[in-house]
Design a protein around this nucleic acid. Structure first.
Lengths: 230, 230
DNA sequence: TCAAAAGTGTTCGCTATACACCCATGG
DNA sequence: CCATGGGTGTATAGCGAACACTTTTGA
């Protein structure tokens, strides 16, 4: 029999964190999934996650798991919901705090974990383990809401990007199409972009200007409250 | 020595729910606080909350605590953040899932709990126990954000209300002042109000029309996505 | 009859939206 | 030279914001 060293007067649930890690490949939104090596749901794809340690916050736990899986020490992460159905894990009572993370796919290295990890376009995600299908839907909705209050999209793009890339990203996140010219005007009017003057060759056609995100203007604007309309 | 019946291989945190219960008294936004009877923070005011039971979700746990405290079987409740600093409770590792609830003060009865409970205007809340000061700030911000996507304000009003009441509520939640005439036009244009034709006498001046919230129009609008601008 | 509250516009300016033209590049 | 993508503009409609007059009621 295994050693049960920790004793409590009342039953305690296990607490885990799970992270929906979003990446953008220039065309669509992707999520990082890992294949489960053990039962239950062995062989199924699921979000990276793990048990909370006693000396860390849920944010620290999720960041630790993110680093183990992607090598990233820092990323935009956002807690969005707790899943606590008593039956959600058949082994024991497990409640999970779900995060979504925004990362640049190019910066992701293979994880320390031996676990098989793979990027999936959000339109082609297979059936997931546990209640992770629902977690993905909720994560996307949380991201869609948040993007009205913070320009979180920049977390998914390289430091320099073209207007077309930015537009494709917003379209991928919100699932809508924008008029190219209106998007351009709106973004520039917002005042959080810096035009770098440099140009980059596109596949076909004219070279595109590069822009960068201007955090100074952003915090100044945020102080007096603003919303990104779409 | 007390009996420690529950044994685990790894340490497990305690999990609680805490609820920021908002009520509207016609003038400003209020929160329900209870005075703590035991250490730590004995005598301090805090949000109602308690330990999660093993057979309930965090939503069910929060609803159970709400009913114990207010007698309400049903209320609008929204999970908004998890607080998990390892030091946040000096006794043991406790992580809490925080909710905010919207209730009608008039429907609240004294709770089953012997605990002293009291409504406080949000502008006059005393120092709170644990990290509850921060929880209150976050709850208010979550409510302010949510009101852009859902007309949650109606949860705080009686079934029939005047335009002035609705405006005062929005002003109290968002902490801003609106022009009476613009607010009136905007709300009517939204199409989620039903004018009841009835009038009610106000303290002074002309009688005011009563309105009710029209959930049918709301769900129809929500289906195609909308946002309340302010 | 007066003060306070409430119903109901109007005007103006901005911005979301729809839409068009020209330029640069690679094949 | 043409197809494709990119830069930049203009016209219109609708909404947000500022603002005024009238009506009703209690004191």
């Amino acid at each position: 029999m295994e050693e049960l060293k920790y004793h409590y007067k009342y039953p305690h649930p296990s607490v885990t964190t799970d992270s929906v890690i979003f990446g953008f490949d220039g065309v669509g939104l992707n999520v990082l999934l890992v294949r489960r090596g053990i039962e239950p749901y062995q062989g199924c794809w699921a979000f990276p996650g793990g048990f909370l340690q006693m000396d860390e916050t849920v944010e620290e736990g999720a960041a630790r798991e993110l680093q183990e899986e992607t090598g990233l020490r820092q990323a935009y992460m956002n807690q969005f919901h707790v899943y606590s159905d008593p039956q959600r894990d058949p082994r024991e009572r497990v409640i999970t705090v779900a995060f979504y993370a925004l990362v640049r796919i190019s910066e992701v290295k293979g994880g320390d974990d031996a676990a098989e990890a793979c990027w999936f376009p959000i339109t082609e995600v297979p059936r997931l383990a546990f209640d992770h299908d629902r977690i993905l839907r909720d994560a996307l909705q949380a991201l869609q809401r948040n993007i009205h209050f913070e320009p979180v999209g920049f977390e998914l793009l390289p430091a320099k990007f073209t207007m077309a890339q930015l537009q494709h990203l917003y379209e991928a996140i919100l699932g809508v199409q924008f008029d190219r010219r209106n998007f351009y005007n709106k973004m520039l009017r917002l005042g959080i972009l810096t035009s770098l003057g440099e140009r980059v060759a596109s596949q076909k056609g004219k070279d595109a200007y590069l822009y960068s995100f201007n955090p100074d203007n952003y915090v100044a604007m945020k102080r007096k409250g603003f919303r990104l309309e779409f």
